[in-house]
Simulated scan of single mutants.
Amino acid sequence: MALLEVKNLGISFGGLRAVDDFNITIEKGCLYGLIGPNGAGKTTVFNMLTGVYLPTDGSILLDGTNLVGKNPAQICQSGVARTFQNIRLFGKMTVLDNVKVALHNEYNYSLASGLLHLGKYKKTEAAMDQRALEILDVFGMKEYAGLLASNLPYGEQRKLEIARALATNPKLLLLDEPAAGMNPNETAELMDTIRFIRNKFEITILLIEHDMKLVTGICEKLTVLNFGTELTTGTPEVVLNDPEVITAYLGE
């Protein structure tokens, strides 16, 4: 059953057609890749899926509900979370608090409780601490809970950003170049982590990535974008042997 159905999606900036007639259907539980050369429109698609950009035309259906017109907070509450190509952590906050920030969709207390540290505040904060630590433990990062996010090694910062996105309890997790800047060992560990969280949390994952080893290692299906339009869709083996993809993306 499809979780995400994107139909005839497009966006124009002035006279520039950045994405045109984009279509994608992703089944529940699928690990799906969106690839293409730099400037192909991949991040623009992510920005439309998350409400950062309002599409010029088309629809975005999540479990049958159209997300077009909703703001980023509403889309997050509907079950879509994302990471960014450039890490966007709260560097002056602890690793634990970075994850807790994302838990406020599920946990809340009144302003008075927060200001006066009343019973509701203490109970909620304790529950959030426990939940955040559980999520960090999935990523093998529990020991870093009290560390400032800015003091983490680069690869661990990447993992923390995914952990924070996961804390919103998404149905669909969008990963924007999660392996960017990682060394081969970190990338191999990331591949295992992505597979694990897909299975453990039973979520659907759509990722943008240039690392073909990661893409072919974990993705079950790919769509290739080129100049804002879909070039082809299929399994990694079929897509990466397509002559048009080789010419447009792999540069051969």
Results as ranks from 00 to 15, higher is better:
residue 1 M to V: 14
residue 6 V to K: 02
residue 7 K to A: 01
residue 11 I to S: 07
residue 11 I to E: 03
residue 14 G to E: 06
residue 17 R to F: 03
residue 24 I to N: 02
residue 24 I to G: 02
residue 25 T to L: 07
residue 25 T to Q: 14
residue 28 K to Q: 12
residue 28 K to I: 05
residue 30 C to A: 15
residue 32 Y to Q: 03
residue 36 G to L: 09
residue 40 A to W: 01
residue 41 G to V: 09
residue 42 K to V: 07
residue 44 T to E: 05
residue 47 N to L: 02
residue 49 L to Q: 08
residue 50 T to G: 08
residue 51 G to L: 08
residue 56 T to W: 02
residue 60 I to R: 10
residue 61 L to Y: 11
residue 63 D to R: 12
residue 66 N to I: 04
residue 66 N to S: 01
residue 73 A to R: 14
residue 80 V to I: 13
residue 81 A to F: 02
residue 81 A to Y: 00
residue 81 A to P: 05
residue 83 T to M: 03
residue 83 T to K: 12
residue 86 N to L: 11
residue 90 F to E: 08
residue 91 G to M: 10
residue 101 V to Y: 03
residue 102 A to V: 06
residue 103 L to E: 13
residue 104 H to T: 12
residue 108 N to Q: 11
residue 108 N to L: 09
residue 108 N to T: 11
residue 110 S to K: 14
residue 113 S to A: 14
residue 119 G to D: 15
residue 126 A to G: 03
residue 126 A to E: 13
residue 128 M to V: 02
residue 129 D to S: 03
residue 134 E to C: 08
residue 134 E to Y: 05
residue 141 M to D: 00
residue 143 E to S: 13
residue 147 L to M: 13
residue 152 L to Q: 08
residue 154 Y to Q: 12
residue 156 E to D: 14
residue 163 A to N: 06
residue 163 A to T: 04
residue 164 R to Y: 05
residue 166 L to D: 02
residue 166 L to W: 00
residue 168 T to G: 04
residue 172 L to P: 02
residue 172 L to E: 14
residue 175 L to A: 08
residue 176 D to R: 00
residue 176 D to W: 08
residue 179 A to E: 08
residue 180 A to P: 06
residue 183 N to F: 06
residue 185 N to P: 09
residue 186 E to C: 02
residue 187 T to N: 07
residue 187 T to Y: 04
residue 191 M to G: 13
residue 191 M to T: 09
residue 193 T to F: 14
residue 193 T to R: 00
residue 195 R to E: 09
residue 197 I to E: 06
residue 198 R to A: 12
residue 203 I to A: 09
residue 203 I to G: 07
residue 207 L to K: 00
residue 214 L to K: 14
residue 216 T to R: 05
residue 222 L to N: 00
residue 222 L to C: 09
residue 222 L to P: 11
residue 223 T to D: 10
residue 233 T to I: 11
residue 234 G to C: 11
residue 236 P to T: 12
residue 237 E to C: 10
residue 237 E to F: 11
residue 239 V to C: 13
residue 239 V to E: 12
residue 240 L to P: 00
residue 244 E to M: 14
residue 247 T to F: 13
residue 249 Y to P: 06
